[in-house]
């Protein structure tokens, strides 16, 4: 059983893994070896992990400050009432949204272009 029947939405419910686990589809093998596929996977995986790392650093940086140095979070910004912690908290929320935006922008352009090129090549 190859990948092409795996997710068939219609028809009978068919088991996915076991039966086909030791017969690897030569078609998929060929795709895996194309430079387009390797380029796509390399770039996207790298990009995804970099952004994941950034999110982890920013969020656990924020949590770390709360955990280890509460006084920094209480510093007043610009002589007003709002504290640094407040700005950082809102920053974490905006940063998370911004990161997803950056990923989607990159995926919509660069990764989709690579993916389209791969799909065209495979169909030939």
């Amino acid at each position: 059983m190859s990948g092409s029947t795996v997710g068939g939405l219609g028809g009978r419910v068919t088991p996915i893994g076991v039966a086909g686990a030791d017969t690897v589809d030569p078609h998929l093998e060929r795709i895996a070896r194309t430079p387009e596929f390797q380029q796509l996977v390399h770039e996207r995986t790298r990009f995804g992990w970099i952004l994941t790392g950034l999110m982890l650093v920013v969020y656990f940086g924020f949590i770390g400050l709360i955990a280890f140095d509460k006084s920094v979070m209480a510093i007043k910004v610009g002589g007003g009432t709002a504290s640094l912690g407040l700005f950082l908290g809102v920053f974490v929320i905006l940063f998370a949204f911004l990161l997803t935006g950056i990923y989607v922008a990159r995926a919509n352009t660069r990764f989709d272009a690579l993916s389209d090129a791969l799909h065209r090549k495979v169909r030939q």
């Binding site: 990948g3 998929l28 596929f37 996977v41």
Partner: peptide, 8 residues
């Protein structure tokens, strides 16, 4: 291959 490309 399928998880990265959706092929299949």
């Amino acid at each position: 291959v399928r998880s990265e490309t959706g092929i299949g």
